[in-house]
Design a protein around this nucleic acid. Structure first.
Length: 171
DNA sequence: CCCTGATTCGC
DNA sequence: GCGAATCAGG
């Protein structure tokens, strides 16, 4: 299955919520593996996260030898370069998930109800927004703005701060 | 062995 | 652009 806007939106949301790639892949349903999710995440440019559960950042590229071209000798690059002491800025606090107005479970979620995921999809408290969804999209007007992040290229008004404000309420 | 994300590269 | 294969690591 291809990456529809809805699936991409869900992917973004769940990834920014700190869910693992495999969890996102399960939640998106069949047709996607965790590799697909990770690949898409990288392609979307949001590889970094606020709260990586397992911070594996070797800071140096983990040169992966290519399986193809079998005649090529396997060269293992041992990290010999001295690296300056990296200064880690203050880690951002983890984002708790407040309860939102809608609390529709997957069973009670209707056709025209906002399908914005609320909470951890793997937990029992997971629910959807459930408010009235627009005619065009699966989300309510408020979540639609967050899901379909507009191209904030130009324009006099500051779309970024507006987006950040709307996001802030859910983070 | 389970899991995690990261990367490469053929498609 | 997509994702399987593969990596390094917890």
């Amino acid at each position: 299955m291809g990456w529809t806007e809805e699936r991409v939106g869900t992917l973004k949301k769940l990834w920014l919520d700190g869910l693992s790639a495999s969890q996102i892949a399960k939640q998106l349903g069949g047709g996607v593996t965790r590799n697909a999710v990770i690949g898409k995440v990288h392609r979307l440019g949001l590889s970094g996260r606020a709260a990586p559960s397992q911070p594996s950042r070797p800071a140096f590229r983990t040169t992966r030898p290519r399986p193809s071209q079998p005649s090529a000798p396997r060269r293992i690059e041992a990290a010999a370069a001295p690296r300056p002491a990296p200064q880690q800025p203050a880690p951002p606090p983890p984002a708790p998930m407040p309860d939102l107005p809608g609390t529709a479970t997957v069973l009670t979620l209707g056709a025209h109800m906002c399908k914005w995921p609320i909470g951890d999809p793997t937990s029992n408290e997971f629910s959807f927004c459930g408010r009235r969804a627009g005619e065009t999209g699966p989300y309510c007007v408020e979540h639609a703005r967050v899901a379909y992040q507009p191209q904030q290229k130009k324009g006099g008004r500051d779309g970024a701060s507006e987006l950040a404000r709307s996001l802030r309420r859910y983070i």
